[in-house]
Design a binder for these strands. Structure first.
Lengths: 142, 142
DNA sequence: GGTTACCTTTACGTTAACGTAAACTTGGTT
DNA sequence: AACCAAGTTTACGTTAACGTAAAGGTAACC
């Protein structure tokens, strides 16, 4: 039972917290191709997934062109040997740069954790000082 | 023995394969603050590391403003309690979105590997066909 | 029948991150 | 002295990814 619902442009915009303008722009750039009900765009589940993928791409710092590229790779059916080989090369490229990104992120996460600890230490120190002050003032008041 | 060399703008540009224009632009945006030898900019090792970090940020899809933000966090010395707490909150935010990115990338890597396999399968099939043709034509010629 | 809520197309505006060109200085070389 | 390579500032141009405004169509509700 495939969920057979269909979505309006406004529904998708609300769900993903983007503007309808953006969605139409993605269509303009060839990343989406919704059907029409008269004038009105009708989005299927497949379209919705595509949109989700577009946004994931953005989170990863992909340009729309790059994402479209990946889509095109995925959609390839009629593929000659030459095409297949270039696709494989492209995939390898992407995988390499993604692995680089993965390493970059891991490093950054460690760095941020270190920074976090430094901050916590400083905070602890400040609080220790204010505690000391408070206790001394308490003493004075006694 | 800290490497005590200093770099010209051109050297750095060549090393990181960017233009001098970009480096000056990063300075304009407050991400670099090289010293001057008269008019000429002089970059220390620290500057070089910063530049490296800027480029890493770009690979991760950070805007220059975001990267500058991280720099500012790191440079904080004179920090009140309130400041420290907001910094900790910001760090947590970043860490969260980075973890999200990490997941995104892992998923994409799997998807690409799947796609790769599909391609290899198709390629194998094509080659099998061409082999078959060749052997049949060989038979004909016999 | 008028208003409201969405939808449409068209088109000009905007921001980030540089590219590119012009005009000038400066240090070293022939 | 002349010249070249590399540096400088100033400023206008460019691309991606939308924002925003104008002008209009349609379906439902009061």
């Amino acid at each position: 039972m495939t969920t057979q619902t269909t979505y309006s442009i406004g529904e998708l915009a609300r769900e993903f917290d983007i503007t309808t303008r953006s969605i139409r722009f993605y269509e303009d750039q060839g990343l989406l191709t919704p059907q029409r009900q008269g004038q009105t765009r009708l989005y299927t589940n497949k379209d919705r997934v595509r949109l989700k993928l577009i946004l994931r791409g953005k989170r990863l710092g992909f340009s729309l062109a790059e994402t479209k590229n990946l889509f095109d790779l995925y959609d390839m059916e009629n593929s000659s040997e030459r095409q297949l080989r270039t696709v494989l090369a492209l995939i390898d490229d992407k995988k390499l740069s993604l692995k680089q990104q993965l390493e970059d992120i891991k490093v950054l996460l460690v760095e941020l954790s270190n920074l976090e600890e430094r901050c916590r230490d400083e905070l602890a120190e400040i609080e220790a000082q204010s505690m000391a002050k408070q206790s001394s003032s308490t003493q004075e008041s006694l």
